[in-house]
Design a protein around this nucleic acid. Structure first.
Lengths: 204, 204
DNA sequence: GTAATTTATGGCAGGGAGTGACAGATGACA
DNA sequence: TGTCATCTGTCACTCCCTGCCATAAATTAC
């Protein structure tokens, strides 16, 4: 990796960390881009080159989570029922969270606190998740050979899987003290949900 | 109803209709609040007194839908399993859509077209739905006597029900030509979903 | 090592969203 | 009719975000 790329990564993290600290200190809404940029020692204009906006910061781990999930999905056998595949993908996400570097884990937990203090952010995150859903529907449709214009099954399968994700992540209590807690809760929710569907419901 | 209230309702609808037409004409993003206010013959400042922003316009029917759903939920027997109650509430929403006045039905369908042309709007709508979810979780927790801090069941029940709603409304094809189509599809999705859960899964 | 090229950064200008404050207009009501 | 409450428009302001251009830094070629 060249000096240029390393520098970019450093600024990206500087902005992210500055933002997280400011959010926790004085609240998400009360924090301006100008402040974040100032704390990270870049110009506001540069901030927008790294992040599309304040919201983008808050959704930082979503894009990563989606990538993990889609990779995991691709690695499942093609003839597996899609819901089963998605649940495995969710477990892969849980595993991945646990393997975050200490720095990333700290960022992750800080962001979680920001979410707890700003319920409207949850809405934005869920909105972002809706876009992920559309891509997953495509993936599931391709895997099953179903046409999403004809069958509502791919939509349902994905929507249910995302519900499980959301419930696993969102529930504020009991309090989460580390990424392991969170991973455990996600796994637990997957286990719980696994038992409530009639076997084979997700087969075309 | 006094003259004052009638006038307010008229302005509200004037703004809404002006916005819908502009959205369809030149796109949601390209339409400014100033234009909407101008077309509705009010000042921009007044626009913001009626709607918190452009987004609020797009979520106009959500608040109403939530109200319908919660009323329907309240009217179900308290000892009914919560998921069953929610599915009945969804059917109530479907019934309600069908009974919209022709004017409201037209607005509803126009808004749907705007959504189709602006996928990011779906995300915002889903985000709003997330707030609805939290309120429904409370309602379900109260009905079942479950503590949402202890059991993840209320969350799951509500999240699954909302998934069904979303799938029913969102799926763009086959094309929807009237509110009856939409109501039918919602009912259809509820019927489909009803069969995929193991009986009694939602009982504490 | 130096020159040429690519790429990141900062500053500036400007549009659009959204809000608070105040003055004037208009319906409500005695 | 006169008083009161409420709605409306104007103004000024902050913040978000983008396009544009000049500068500075890293990369590559020579």
């Amino acid at each position: 990796m060249g000096l240029r790329e390393r520098k970019k990564e450093k600024t990206r993290l500087a902005i992210l960390d500055a933002a997280l600290d400011l959010f926790l200190e004085q609240g998400y809404d009360a924090t301006t881009v100008e402040q974040i940029a100032g704390a990270a020692e870049v110009s506001p204009r540069t901030f927008f080159r790294y992040f599309s906006g304040k919201e983008h910061l808050a959704l930082w781990y979503h894009d990563y989570g989606e990538a993990v999930m889609r990779e995991a999905l691709d690695s499942r056998p093609a003839d597996e029922p899609p819901f089963t595949s998605l649940l495995h993908a969710l477990r892969a996400v849980a595993d991945d969270i646990q393997e975050l570097t200490p720095e990333d884990a700290e960022r992750f937990l800080k962001m979680r606190k920001v979410y707890e203090a700003n319920p409207t952010l949850i809405g934005k995150a869920v909105g972002r998740a809706a876009e992920t859903e559309l891509r997953l529907v495509d993936a599931v449709a391709r895997r099953t050979g179903l046409d999403p214009d004809e069958s509502r099954l791919p939509y349902l399968v994905v929507a249910f899987a995302m519900s499980i994700t959301r419930v696993g992540f969102e529930c504020p209590r009991p309090e989460v003290t580390g990424v392991s807690d969170l991973a455990a809760r996600l796994r637990e929710t997957v286990d719980l949900a696994e038992r409530v569907f009639v076997p084979g419901w997700d087969r075309p």
